[in-house]
Each structure stands twice: as C-alpha cells, then as structure tokens.
C-alpha cells in the first residue's frame, strides 16, 4: 500500500516539469479578450471566491483525469463484478471487517491527540466487534450505540498545528495534500507493522486481502469523477476537500 505514494512522488517530479503557460490555438498570434474577462469584472480588486492555493495544479489535474480513467477501466468494473457475484450480507461483512481494522489507526491517533473519550469509544468498539462481532464481520458496537470516530495521522499532525502543505491529487486515492498523504503512509506502515491479519505468517491471505480491500473501499465510495458534469468540478472538489479536512482536524 506504500507503493502508490512512491508512484505519486515520481509522477509529481515528472509532471511538474511541464509549462503552465496559456495554451493557444495553433496559428493564433494574439488573444482577443472575451466579452466577460477578469478586467471587466474588476476581479483583481476583490478576494477571489472559493480559491485554494494549488502550486501543483497542472500535475494534479492530469492525475484527476488519470484517476477517472482508472475508475472507468479498472476499479468500477471490478466493483460491478464484485457486486454481481456476492450477496449483500457478504459485502456488508467485508465492509465491517475492514472498518474494524481501521479502528486501530484511529485508536492510536486518538491516543496521540490525547482524546480520551474517543479512545474509550474506539477501544470498546474494537473489542466488541473483534469478539462478539466475529473478527469484525458484524458491527455489533453499532447496535450498542457506541459512537464511531475517524482519526488518522494527517489529522494528528493538523491537531498539533502542522500545515497542510500543497494540495495533491494522489493516484487512485484521489484528493489529498502533502501532510495527509504522509499521514496516510504512516498509518499504513503502522498497521502493516501491527499486522492484525497476520499477513506475514500467512502470505496466502494477501490474495483475498488486498483485492478485497481495494474493491470494498471503492464500492463504499459514492464519489465518481466528472459525475457532476461541471467544468469546474476540479475546483469544487478541491475546495470541499480542504474544508472537510479542516473540519476533521478541528473535530
């Protein structure tokens, strides 16, 4: 799971080499100002609405497009196939299982942020679901009304005042920023070190584990690239991602 990050950094260095000048039609020598341009709207005098700093925009946009294609050719067909061959209760079990594993990084990050009531909730969830819930296949804790929390290392860094760094579109994972991308890597490494599924002792478990993790994550993600049809979807997603992460960190 660390590989995609490596690919991201690699593509980042490759892609940001491109130029960011205004693309002109072949043969065009000058640019006719549009009917409504920035100047006419006097936009230089007001704060730009909804704008987020994005120094790697050209790379990010290319990656946004790449992710949409990866969805079309790889992930969405995989999800469709998965949903065709498995009954609903099996998929629910798989979702619960991975969600239960996800409590581990949440718990650790709650400890790091000294959020003790959250630690209490998450430990109870983890224990209940791992035992009565048959290794997390059933979300029994939900029936006991134990609230679920979601913390990751990116939020922990944010909690202690670390800035987000530049906005980053990660391959396959989608919107992120430098801080949260590193946080995601750290969480993954820690979970791999704890190895609750004992993948190290039972290498054959990897064959169902990773494909299921990927398919389950995509299946539970309602977002589809370019689904809004808006030519400004990239900007809207960027704004909302940033806003949501601010909310998450503050929580």
């Amino acid at each position: 799971m660390v590989k995609p990050l490596g690919i991201a950094l690699l593509t980042l260095t490759l892609a940001t080499g491109g130029c960011a000048t205004t693309p002109k039609a072949p043969g065009a020598t000058s640019i006719t100002p549009p009917i409504y341009g920035r100047e006419r709207m006097a936009l230089d005098d007001v704060e730009a609405p909804l704008e987020i700093s994005d120094p790697f925009e050209a790379y990010n946009r290319s990656m946004y497009w790449f992710n949409a294609k990866a969805d079309d050719y790889l992930l969405n067909p995989a999800v469709a196939g998965y949903q065709r061959i498995t009954p609903e209760f099996v998929r629910r079990g798989v979702t619960n299982f991975f969600q239960n594993l996800d409590e581990i990084p949440t718990l650790l990050n709650q400890v790091l942020q000294l959020k003790w009531s959250g630690v209490w909730d998450t430990s109870r969830r983890l224990v209940t679901n791992s035992t009565i819930g048959v290794a997390g296949l059933m979300d029994v804790a939900k029936r006991f009304n134990i609230p679920r929390h979601d913390e990751d290392f990116g939020q922990t860094l944010g909690h202690y005042g670390v800035g987000t760094g530049p906005y980053l579109m990660l391959p396959l994972f989608g919107p992120s920023n430098l801080r949260d991308a590193l946080g995601r890597g750290a969480d993954t490494l820690v979970l791999a070190a704890i190895d609750p599924v004992e993948l190290d002792h039972h290498p054959d478990r990897r064959y169902p584990y990773y494909p299921l993790l990927i398919v389950d994550t995509r299946a539970n993600t309602a977002f589809q690239y370019y689904e809004t049809g808006s030519p400004f979807e990239y900007e809207l997603v960027r704004l909302l991602f940033n806003t949501m992460r601010e909310f998450d960190v503050a929580k």
Binding site: G18, A20, T22, P23, K24, A25, A28, S30, I31, T32, P33, P34, I35, Y36, G37, R38, M41, L43, A48, P49, L50, E51, E57, A58, Y59, R61, S62, Y64, W65, P231, F232, Y234, E235
Partner: peptide, 21 residues
C-alpha cells in the same frame, strides 16, 4: 464569452479565472 477564442483548454489547464468570472 468568458474564455478567449484563441485559448485551447487542456485537461491540465487552470480554470480558476473562468470560474470566478
């Protein structure tokens, strides 16, 4: 109207100005 005629947008082109207008 908003985009200058001669500008040919690509997937990686910034749209920030057009959104604001």
């Amino acid at each position: 109207f908003i985009k200058p005629k001669e500008v040919v947008l690509k997937n990686r082109s910034s749209m920030a100005d057009y959104l604001q207008v």
